[in-house]
Design a protein around this nucleic acid. Sequence first.
DNA 1: CGAACACTTGACAGCCCTCAACGTGAGTGG
DNA 2: CCACTCACGTTGAGGGCTGTCAAGTGTTCG
Lengths: 250, 250
Amino acid sequence: MSDLTFPRIDERVLADDGDALNFCSTCAFSQACLAEGMDKGSLQDLHMLVQHVGPVHAGDHLFRTGDPFEAIAAVRAGTVKTYVVDRNGREHVLGFHLPGEVIGLDGIDGDTYPCNAVALDTVMLCRFSFPKISVLAARLPGLQRHLFRLLSRDIGRAALLAGDWSADERMAAFLIGISQRLAARGFSPDRFQLTMARTDIANYLRLAPETVSRVLKRFQAEGMLGVERREVEILDRARIEALAAPVLRH
Amino acid sequence: MSDLTFPRIDERVLADDGDALNFCSTCAFSQACLAEGMDKGSLQDLHMLVQHVGPVHAGDHLFRTGDPFEAIAAVRAGTVKTYVVDRNGREHVLGFHLPGEVIGLDGIDGDTYPCNAVALDTVMLCRFSFPKISVLAARLPGLQRHLFRLLSRDIGRAALLAGDWSADERMAAFLIGISQRLAARGFSPDRFQLTMARTDIANYLRLAPETVSRVLKRFQAEGMLGVERREVEILDRARIEALAAPVLRH
DNA sequence: CGAACACTTGACAGCCCTCAACGTGAGTGG
DNA sequence: CCACTCACGTTGAGGGCTGTCAAGTGTTCG
């Protein structure tokens, strides 16, 4: 497993990128500008800032704890897992980042990344130098506002799983969350693949891997969910959402 | 208990405020400018933006879930509790905000506050209109950077208690956290008052109130902590920090 | 002084973690 | 093509931590 330190990763421009005035539709920043009446010059400025990174292969790291913080990035394809390792050597999964979502925001406070980021499958990214996008944000109110919102949204998201929810509620919230986030990017909300291992899910939900297995099995036995290896299908969305409701909406 | 909706609260300038070029030392924004070589004109701009609010009395709300988001605020004196109420009527404490800390950042994403904020004792605030400070941030790179950092810091903080820590570890981390935050503002790190009820602590740490009582009692019995009603004294900082270590530092 | 509230203390049960063993699928080399 | 290996996932038994329920004590405020 090679170790590609994210800020120093080899960069190459991909052929399937949009032209100078159009971002790829899954880009988390596309809405930032297009929807807010930004002029063409400004848009081009932002576009010139993007560095396309990838493909990064499963198991390769984008950055590690302590690497100098220089950039944030939007996931274009694949799944990125962020995690920390405590002094006892135990891994704590902080989150999974699907296409269209941004990683690295928690590095802004401090000069280094506070966590590790690893690709779970083949990942493509759009990288934004943070000093450069900060300068641009000062000129573009829409971009500044968008960055503030991205940051603010993560604060709320991090607090989601902090409650003392049951294993069933956590798992339901996890499944509905993935489903909604995939749907927002145009993927099927009812049938999708869990790109992460059971161990990672357990670690993220603060459960034992055995508990994850048992809950998924029970969901399947009760007809709420279809499970076959890492492929899942939402069969009774209403019931799963009912379980997830207290977690997702306070 | 009156209900002072934060954005519409009566405002008055306090006599003990700094002059036009000096913020009160506990203000979370003072570092933003003074430390980064900002020119006097810019500093005055920021200072003109501040609205001093208070005193707000214990039990009064600064804002409630759904109130229109218009401003963030730095706590100057007292303690603010933020919380949400789920559909079952159960309260979930999101955090306690001590002097020098900022509230309202999680309202930036969305047009309304996502939580309630209530004063636990007599509270004084510095209020910053968010639209106005955004505009100013576009002119002042140091201020923009400071705002980004405040937001980023909260993302990490929210993730702290998300782990599956034991009751002892949670309580130790809570005590050390309070101690460090008070020390950073010049208060005693070894002897301080818990301004919140046991129920609030329990709710914040995702424990039962009974468990909070038992853990505090055991800490006291083992000579780590002095407890007398809401007054606490750190007697064996090394041991409490050892307990808190896995929670505070990953 | 009395009532309401905060806090403490004790008994008990339940959820989930731990430990252990087994099953399964993908990749590898012969 | 097949056996092997290893990581991943599943299944079962048992125990500990902490929540729930209940009752009692102390404090504050009207």
